[in-house]
């Protein structure tokens, strides 16, 4: 699956109402560590069909960042049935991301 760009317009549809587990990648264009995580997430998205990965630009979606209490990026949030179940703040390795996603 490809990474889906999400903003305030399609957030409910792609994240809250998603039947699949969702990994939200909160990022920004000026954030170096976010750029490091980007290609890793693309690889994970390609290799896994059991999770949907979405990307949210915090500068363009400040309300979503606020709603999720994101004050530092990169921030990865795992959402299941519309609810946050896990998160990680800061740069992590591919293995650690896969652990975060879980089964």
């Amino acid at each position: 699956m490809k990474i889906i760009n999400v903003d305030e317009d399609n957030f409910n549809e792609e994240v809250i109402n998603s039947k699949q587990k969702v990994l939200i990648d909160f990022n920004a264009t000026w954030c170096g560590p976010c750029k490091m995580i980007g290609p890793v997430l693309e690889k994970i998205a390609e290799q896994n069909d059991n999770i949907k990965i979405v990307s949210i630009d915090v500068d363009n979606n400040q309300d979503l960042a606020k709603e999720y209490n994101v004050f530092s990026i990169p921030c990865l949030v795992v959402v299941k049935d519309g609810k946050e179940i896990k998160r990680n703040v800061g740069l992590i390795s591919k293995n650690e991301i896969e652990e975060l996603i879980g089964e």
Binding site: C31, D59, A65, F71, S72, I73, V89, G90
Partner: peptide
């Protein structure tokens, strides 16, 4: 960390 504590102002200042 990430909820008020930060080690990088240029990374997180804009929040």
């Amino acid at each position: 960390i990430g909820k008020g504590i930060s080690y990088c102002a240029t990374c997180d200042g804009s929040f």
